[in-house]
Amino acid sequence: MTENRPKKLEKLPTPLPILFVGIPGPGLIGILSLTYVIHALKMETIGEVEHPDLSNIIFIDNGELFGPARIYKKGSLFAVISDVPIDYTLADGFAESIIDFCKKNKIRMIIILSGLQAIERDLATLKTYGIVTDEKLEKVLYENEIPKFLSGMITGPDATILTRLKNSPIPTMILYTECNFFFPDPEAAINTIKTVSRILKTEIDITEFKKQIDFLRLQGRQLMEETLTILRPEKTQAPVTVPPIYK
């Protein structure tokens, strides 16, 4: 038995309805990892995120029309993935649509997959950190050996989305994997896939993903460039140090 051999996926061992969210961000971690999780778990498209500002683009594949932010499902697992960067003007509405979807589908936990700039990127020591908006999820971090993101700062659309979700009744966790901020980083995304695999208690075979690493980096060039144009302005405006926080 090899480490990466998948178990049967017909029945996922999670009775808890969970929604995974992946949008273009640092290293394209969210998109790369969630796309592969959707593929590996054979999740099926069930709809699209409906938001007026997301309706100005539509993709055509094999003659079929697809919106940029789609919803997938398998059993009690849901996933929302966006093929276009969610900028500041979209982030609030996007979060609102996610909250509405969760309420309608009785989602009990949201897990957002994202990336975090590694100062000195070393593949052997890259970590995935977690932040939770509800104490109940601390247990999930502990059980899955996910270190807590203790101190730092979140900027960009992630911050807008997290602010909305923090004030919503749906417990949310963000997984931040250290990565190359400026280039698509599928090797770092493997850490995210492994963490998702632990949370779901389902092995996800990453052999296929590893074979495609170079092509994923090539394919992701344009999306990465578009994503950086959204992330850069705020990144330079953000303060360099964390202010003292009085409690």
Binding site: F182, F183, P184, I213, D214, F215, R217, L218, R221
Partner: peptide, 9 residues
Amino acid sequence: WILEIDLPL
């Protein structure tokens, strides 16, 4: 100055 260029494959 550090210039990094992504050259996969």
